[in-house]
Design a protein around this nucleic acid. Structure first.
Length: 252
DNA sequence: AAACCAAACAACCGCCCGCAC
DNA sequence: TGTGCGGGCGGTTGTTTGGTT
């Protein structure tokens, strides 16, 4: 079935935004706000653009507090840490970095950070998706398992199982996992899809800039540092192994 | 100087979800 | 309760830019 498109593609302008359009949109939003209706906004503002396009342009480029480029090492670490815990939820990751947009973070990851991560890799494990293997320690986002301690949302049970709230930055600050052993940290990519039969499946090397993150199987080490992330672990599972939440196994 | 290639960035596509009716 | 609409999001593609040959 599918749903009707949000706008008539034949009647709206597409492609790069002109400075005039930027000015129009920016001045309109700053003067009148979005009115909670992006679909109607371009018409009111006198723009021949799709409402979604206007929203994207404003959020990713025209907002006054936007920062572009120049990611700091601290931001690198934030991205890496969050990516390793919650996956490609760019909006969540971006929300932890003022002035950054999900699109920016996503692009930065796809073009730079990912390569940085893989640079110097010695044992990139890039295989077809497999189910998660048993480990001694689990990190779960399953809300039913959620606990909060006084210092962090992460905790360790008697069975060496860590549960945490991925949205809790205290976790990020207070729980700095250091795993002495070589056992892999494993976390399935959310909504990881089956692939490989269409000729566009994962390859073992030569990650091109167009390799989809959803197709890629990543190896990272438990220590979550940039240098060490590249050593162990892999995306695994099909996104539905444990439940809809993510399932992270960290070996002690 | 031109051609080619890869990286970086901007923008679009389509799906999902929440909400109003 | 069902349906449609709009917002939000992640994935993908198109375009531009810079470097190399």
């Amino acid at each position: 079935m599918g749903r009707a498109p949000c706008c008539d593609k034949a009647k709206v302008k597409r492609g790069p935004w002109s400075p005039e359009e930027d000015t129009t949109l920016k001045s309109y939003v700053q003067r009148y706000g979005t009115g909670g209706n992006w679909i109607a906004l371009p018409h009111k503002a006198g723009l021949r653009r799709c409402g979604k396009s206007c929203r994207l342009r404003w959020l990713n480029y025209l907002r006054p507090d936007i920062r572009h480029g120049g990611f700091t090492e601290e931001e690198d670490n934030i991205i890496l840490t969050l990516y390793s815990t919650i996956g490609s939820r760019w909006s969540v990751i971006a929300s932890h970095m003022p002035g950054r947009t999900d699109n920016d973070v996503k692009n930065y990851w796809n073009t730079k950070l990912k390569k940085k991560l893989f640079a110097g890799k010695t044992s990139l494990s890039s295989t077809r998706a497999t189910t998660t293997t048993t480990t001694n320690c689990h990190i779960s986002t399953d809300p039913s398992m959620h606990f909060t301690t006084t210092t962090s949302s992460a905790f360790v049970t008697e069975a060496n199982t860590i549960y945490y709230d991925p949205t809790d930055m205290n976790y990020q600050q207070n729980f700095v996992p250091e795993f002495p052993g070589p056992d892999p940290i494993q976390f399935p990519l959310p909504r990881l899809m089956e692939f490989g039969e269409n000729g566009r499946g994962p390859v073992h090397s030569n990650l091109s800039s167009r390799v989809s993150s959803s197709q890629e199987l990543l190896s990272v080490s438990p220590s979550l540092s940039l240098e060490n992330m590249s050593t162990y672990a892999s995306w695994s599972g099909n996104g539905g192994g444990e439940d809809d939440g993510f399932f992270y196994g960290i070996g002690f």
